[in-house]
Lab assay of single mutants.
Amino acid sequence: MDVFMKGLSKAKEGVVAAAEKTKQGVAEAAGKTKEGVLYVGSKTKEGVVHGVATVAEKTKEQVTNVGGAVVTGVTAVAQKTVEGAGSIAAATGFVKKDQLGKNEEGAPQEGILEDMPVDPDNEAYEMPSEEGYQDYEPEA
C-alpha cells in the first residue's frame, strides 16, 4: 500500500510541476504579447503594419512553449490582441483601416495563427491545408 501511495504522490508532483510550467509559459506569452502591443503603439504610420505582424510573430513563438489545451486559448487571445492593436492603430490615425491585415508588401496577414497546427491532446499534428499553395516548377 505504501508503494501505491508513494507512486500516487510522485504522479501528483509531476502534474503540479507540469501545471506550473504551463502557467509560466502562458505568463511569458502574455508578456511578449504586451511587449508587441507597446511596440505597435510606438510606431509611426509606416511601421504600424509591420508592428502588428511582430506582435503576432512574438506571440506565436511563445505559444510553442505552452502545451496542451492552453495553446488553443493563448492563440485565440493573441489573435484578438493583434486585431485590437490594429483597431487602436486605425482609431489613433497611425494607419488607414484599409491597410490593416496586410503586410508591407500588401499581402493579407489573416491566418497567421489560424494555420498553425495545434492539437490540445498532444496526440497528432496535421499540416495546414494546401489550398493556398501553388506547385513550383523550376525553369529549365
Rank of each mutant, 00 (worst) to 15 (best):
E130A: 06
L8Q: 00
G68H: 12
A56T: 08
E104R: 15
F94I: 07
E139N: 11
T81K: 02
Y133F: 08
A76Q: 08
E20W: 07
N122R: 14
G67V: 10
K97W: 15
N122V: 09
A56Y: 09
M1E: 00
D2L: 15
T81W: 05
G47I: 09
T54D: 01
G86I: 14
V15Q: 00
T75N: 07
V66C: 06
E28S: 10
E35L: 10
K43W: 14
S87W: 15
E57Q: 06
V77D: 01
Q109I: 10
K97L: 07
V15F: 15
M5P: 00
E139S: 11
V82Q: 06
E83R: 05
V26D: 00
K102Q: 02
I88E: 02
S129M: 10
E131I: 11
S87E: 11
K10E: 01
A90G: 01
A27S: 05
V95M: 02
D2Q: 12
E137R: 10
A30H: 02
K23R: 07
K21Q: 05
Y39G: 02
T92Y: 15
E123T: 08
V15A: 03
K12A: 10
G73A: 15
A29F: 14
S129T: 09
A89W: 15
N65Y: 12
P128N: 08
A124H: 09
V48E: 00
K80W: 13
G86H: 10
E20Q: 08
T22M: 08
Q99K: 02
S129K: 04
G68I: 15
S129I: 06
A76G: 05
A124K: 14
A27R: 06
K60D: 00
V71N: 02
A29P: 00
G68D: 13
L113F: 09
T81I: 06
P120W: 05
A76P: 01
V26W: 15
V82R: 04
K45L: 14
Q62F: 05
S42R: 09
A27Q: 15
V3Q: 03
G84F: 13
A89S: 05
V55M: 14
F4V: 02
A89K: 03
Y125R: 06
M127A: 03
G132L: 11
Y39K: 06
V71L: 10
G47R: 13
Y39E: 02
Q62L: 07
T22D: 00
V63M: 14
A56D: 00
A124M: 14
E131Y: 12
G132W: 11
T59Y: 15
T33F: 02
G36K: 15
T33I: 03
D135N: 13
K58S: 06
V66R: 04
V48A: 04
I88R: 03
A78D: 01
Q79I: 08
A140F: 08
G73Q: 11
E126Q: 03
